[in-house]
Design a protein around this nucleic acid. Structure first.
Lengths: 335, 335
DNA sequence: TTGTAAGCGTTATCAC
DNA sequence: GTGATAACGCTTACAA
């Protein structure tokens, strides 16, 4: 393996001079720089960032801890973080927790071992102890997508309550009163907030509006399960509000199996859109979150913290608006 | 920051003893182990893997270099690599090259700087010099999903030629003779192989079968573009073979805009399925690749190489079969 | 503009 | 079973 010493010897300079050339620090005469660069090229030298980081106490690496990268919402988020971090000279390590607090803890520990400069966290549970654990070790954290019980932390997320309200309001305006919410997991703030928005809209609709909500998980399997259960009731709901895109798809599978036509026999709306590039015939009415923009904002904030560019006397709580996209699955006015 | 020295001092032992406890190496008396573990817990000590790796020359980290993680095919691959590597005690760094040789080169360099133990590479071009560059520095590489001009490297991929043949054969058996292939990029082996399979099937069909193929990129935008161009011809093709899922979706957008019904007015088949969890009403006839299994195999092979468990006198060339899934988009027999 | 010396936190090597 | 010492490859602090 070629080290900085080998390069220095070949160039006839001291190792620190090579270091200065590599890092563009301090004054170097053009001639020396050229000689050093020649030696680097001839030897095919690649600096060892482990050694660099050990000495400099900076890894230029941040981590994104999320629940499941195969969910397109998080895939897009991952791209947003990667693109933003990369532009700022940072690398990103991704970790999937599968909504498990235990996995989250394990990964957080690993990341601290790796001396990451900062962490972006989508907490598995709103009661997550991970934020405290990281903060105790003086590593900056920014919480992404979900609220967390700890107040002394930066949070960047979208307006789940407002989005849910808009979707349910739309259904109500279309004439629906029996609207079932197929929700995600308990203990996740987005579930709670979407329920709050649902309740607000339902309560505004008055006494005939009947609240029907069910917790599950944010997966297609759970959406399928809940939809079957809900549709077995009498009288049946006339509309379904799925708390995310995977739940919505699971529900659509169930409805199709049961021979129910959307939106004629049952209206469906959902939180989270699917990326345009993955859908042949878009027909789901959704509240869509700016996933890319959100992750970009969070990454910028984290990097600002790393560079002491953000006022650390107070935490930021950034809430981005969601956009209602009305397509055919919500149907027309019900008489 | 708490170091191994702090723990050693508190436990009244030498640093190396703490090291032995952490790593479970050598003989340690149960009492000493307990004392050390107590000190670790009390101080909230987290080992610095930078220092460890610098000394031990092992990072327990591998890298997956792919083109775009927002393509579900690669998202699944990423999960496969992560899950497999994690089980074997390795961490994974992901990099998106966006099919750019330049980005690929930049990332490869970065990964070598980070001293990754090995690299899984989906090469941007089949002429990629990256494999050589990495091998010159004695880092094991396994090439994933695509062939590469260098023969002295392990490759794990799927049978693009066979899958393409099956899809086109299906169309031919259904009566189609004017079949347009909307292909991916030139210089990517999967494009070449899918074209080969297409040609083989077309040639078997005899003289009336008219070869129509177009190169683009593996994106929805390109599929849209090519479909518009192809469908403007007279006489029009009666079937489209999209070289991947994104191209297929782009083509479907174009066909819908042009008011052409699938499969009544034009049949469509595609390479790569979309994950079940993302599709409400599956209707595309596809050749689906075992992405998760492929990435698992590749990761296992790489890790075997890292542990000197694979015979290194010869490279492996693993080709996995693809599966034909016939749905409605390919239509019924054309009279 | 360039160089010397020391140290980052850990483990390999050898010793007891 | 446990420990002393040196070294991994680099950069900080200080000097010249």
């Amino acid at each position: 393996m070629t080290t900085i010493h080998d390069v220095a010897k070949r160039a006839g300079v001291a190792p620190i001079t090579v270091s200065r050339v590599i890092n563009n620090t301090g004054y170097i005469s053009p001639e020396t720089r050229q000689i050093v660069n020649k030696a680097i090229a001839e030897l095919g030298y690649v600096p060892n960032v482990l050694a660099r980081s050990l000495r400099s106490k900076r890894t230029n690496t941040i981590a994104l801890v999320l629940t499941d990268i195969t969910n397109p919402f998080f895939t897009i988020m991952a791209r947003g973080v990667e693109d933003t971090a990369s532009d700022a000279g940072f690398n990103v390590i991704f970790c999937n927790t599968d909504e498990s607090e235990e996995k989250e803890k394990k990964y957080i520990q690993l990341l601290l071992q790796k001396q990451v400069d900062g962490i972006l966290l989508v907490p598995a549970k709103s009661t997550s102890k991970s934020v405290d654990y990281v903060q105790e070790r003086d590593i900056p954290v920014v919480v992404l997508d979900r609220r967390v019980s700890n107040n002394l932390v930066d949070v960047v997320r979208c307006d789940s309550e407002g989005g849910a309200y808009q979707l349910v309001k739309l259904l109500i305006d279309l004439g629906h009163r029996r609207i079932a919410l197929l929700n995600g997991s308990v203990d996740v703030s987005t579930s709670e907030d979407r329920l709050s928005g649902y309740k607000r809209a339902m309560q505004e609709a008055g006494a005939e509006a009947e609240e029907l909500y069910y917790y599950g998980t944010f997966t297609q399997a759970s959406g399928y399960e809940l939809a079957r259960r809900v549709m077995a009731q009498t009288p049946r709901p006339t509309a379904i509000f799925a708390a995310n895109n995977l739940i919505a798809i699971g529900a659509l599978w169930a409805l199709q199996e049961m021979g129910l036509k959307v939106p004629e026999e049952i209206a469906v709306v959902s939180f989270d859109d699917l990326p345009q590039s993955l859908v042949a015939y878009p027909f789901l009415t959704v509240a869509t979150q700016p996933a890319y923009e959100m992750s970009k904002k969070a990454t910028d904030l984290l990097i600002a913290r790393l560079n002491d560019k953000a006022p650390d006397d107070q935490c930021q709580n950034i809430v981005l608006p969601v956009e209602l996209i009305v397509r055919s699955s919500s149907g027309k006015v019900v008489s």
